[in-house]
Nucleic acid binder design. Sequence first.
DNA 1: AAAACAAGTTTCAAAATAAGACTAGGTTAT
DNA 2: ATAACCTAGTCTTATTTTGAAACTTGTTTT
Lengths: 151, 151
Amino acid sequence: MKRKNFSGAECPVARSLDVIGDWWSLLIIRDALDGINRFSAFQKNLGIARSMLTARLQDLVDHGVLETAPASDGTAYQEYVLTEMGRGLFPVIVALRQWGEDNLYQPDEQHSILVETQTGEPVTRLELRSRENQVLEWQDTKVRKLSPDEK
Amino acid sequence: MKRKNFSGAECPVARSLDVIGDWWSLLIIRDALDGINRFSAFQKNLGIARSMLTARLQDLVDHGVLETAPASDGTAYQEYVLTEMGRGLFPVIVALRQWGEDNLYQPDEQHSILVETQTGEPVTRLELRSRENQVLEWQDTKVRKLSPDEK
DNA sequence: AAAACAAGTTTCAAAATAAGACTAGGTTAT
DNA sequence: ATAACCTAGTCTTATTTTGAAACTTGTTTT
């Protein structure tokens, strides 16, 4: 009765969740995008149990989302840094952030915001656009299953 | 030793994950966006244990992502349909899908694709753009913590 | 040299998950 | 009308995952 895994799924959403769909992975990745890269920094910032963090970091390294590197401060320790693949999760984090901002705060409640480094301005909304540059909602799209030849 | 919860977090990503961050929620939402809305349809499509599905659907209803409605086919059963808030997760699902497509398939491997309903064309890439309409990468943004007045 | 820190591992208890049997209404076929 | 089947669950049990805290080993700081 191991937890189900979706690593062989036909649906890319399922495969993604197989890699980063558990309770802590996306928060680790969020922190990594914020520049956190040491074991103890993740642990302190997240309040995660050390044993959990060890397991999650190892999973992410195994899946190619993070990689280890010698510490940049010259000490003998190591760092966990995002790979190209890991940095590709930036839109996922932004989408989660914007949904949370929109739906999970009281009108008067404060939260951190994402800003453009250059200008300090809050970032714009992440949107899917059609080839004609219109914003696409979910009704405007559909999933096409495997191409005709394969079932 | 309850699982940690992030419902009071300052970070919107954490709050979002508190609602949809467990193992099945985003797959249920993916299916709901595909038009699935009956208990047994979710169960069959996902291969999830019935007891799990019961719990997850209830959580999502409690959080306002789904709501129940009388079955649209005239039977006495009910349906689970996305609320406005739930439909707002569309970009999250698209972002996960595109990341999976980019990183989790062999070059020759097949998978479902998301297309524009109107044209049948695959959708374009979901991108965060600056106010000058340039694509923003993670290096181009930063998180600004709570505004100056509150710690 | 001693104290403190970093990055874990180990142990144990509690919670989450999976699988399948069981159930009570609702629907369909005969 | 009733038997058979479907829908949407609940219940039970076994296993896995998670969380908390103590313990460890090597590294760095004082």
